[in-house]
Design a protein around this nucleic acid. Structure first.
Lengths: 194, 194
DNA sequence: CTGTATATTGAATACATATTCAATGAAAAC
DNA sequence: GTTTTCATTGAATATGTATTCAATATACAG
């Protein structure tokens, strides 16, 4: 394994460790030393890989942003066009909920993206996360569902915000309480259903 | 006005200012100087009224805890016993949403209580907020609704967690985006409905 | 091998911000 | 009107934690 690959491995290890800690303890409560200790590596070495705690967060958010974009333009987006809107959303939630245990990486990333959008989070990371706009994507889906006659009346954007706020809230609880039972996706889609 | 009353007034002014800032900017991002500047008063004087930033938060959370307890044992609790479960919850949300503009104090307090329960928030305040358990209260209500045949099947505690996580998420958005339209309480109660 | 580059450490430093404090002003008590 | 108590200020200090750095070890290249 080349030197460059080694370094890349190490960067990923740091990123994954930080991701877990950020989501479970919160960004401000996880200190650089916490991450270093968990990797494990010395505190100073962290700065050989990332120039600051904020940049580390930004890298994570960038990864999340790419993933989300891929999702909303790749084959999954095709499925969205074909499937009935409610089926697609239920499928998405089912997938995400199952990741909570099988691919915590993906799950945590999704949760982090939501958290970083909140006020008081570092400016630049927040900007990047805000850029990825699931709200609009889902709003379109909701409009489609309304036409199909399966979703309730109401401003699609507002419905979309409510839907995602709910999903985010529940996923944060799941991220912290690993033993929490997985909710039925239908419960959340019911927010939209007629 | 006596000296003591003056002091009490001033304390309240600080508490209300801090509440607004905590909810809109986040606890960690609002500095003591931010609060002092907004009150307004000198930074040092803040410590004449509250011994620390954490204690200030704790005082707020204590107030919120009292308010919540009063709510769940006062006349409102009676109403809960009489009304159909869905009516009661819708009424509660309607009330809370209307407070967003008319009594931002109450609204913000409610949001803060939710935020403080999260990981990474100061220990003691968190403990106090956790103590106030809306989850169980609502779980009972949900059980009632299930018997009435209006709520879906499923673990009442899990349903309750989902319901509150959703409410919290949406109220946080409303707290930050003052122009956001008020969602229809029915959308959230639909999480529970059969 | 030898020299050069990279990885690693832990202690020193920088920095942001919470907290203290000595000094001053203003109000209440006597 | 004098004394005493409380309110107020802003600069100094303490503290926690991010960040830097000089020193050392390890891997790689020639």
């Amino acid at each position: 394994m080349t030197r460059k690959e080694q370094k890349e491995e190490r960067r990923k290890a740091i990123l994954m460790t930080a991701l877990t800690l950020f989501v479970t303890k919160g960004y401000y409560d996880t200190k650089i030393t916490d991450i270093a200790e968990a990797v494990p590596m010395s505190t100073g070495l962290m700065f050989h890989y990332f120039e600051s705690k904020e940049v580390l967060l930004e890298e994570l958010v960038k990864m999340g942003a790419e993933g989300t974009k891929a999702l909303s333009s790749g084959p999954a987006a095709q499925a969205a066009a074909d499937l009935p809107a409610d089926q697609y959303l239920k499928g998405f939630l089912q997938q995400m909920f199952s990741y909570a245990k099988e691919q915590p990486w993906v799950f945590n990333m999704f949760v982090l993206m939501g958290q970083v959008r909140r006020n008081g989070m570092p400016e630049e990371a927040r900007r990047i996360a805000m850029d990825v706009n699931s709200i609009d994507f889902t709003a379109k889906l909701i409009r489609k569902g309304q036409k199909e006659g399966i979703f309730r009346k109401g401003d699609p954007v507002l419905l979309s915000r409510c839907f995602w706020a709910s999903v985010q809230g529940i996923m944060e609880e799941m991220a912290i309480d690993k033993d929490m039972e997985v909710p039925d996706p239908e419960w959340l889609v019911a927010i939209l259903r007629k």
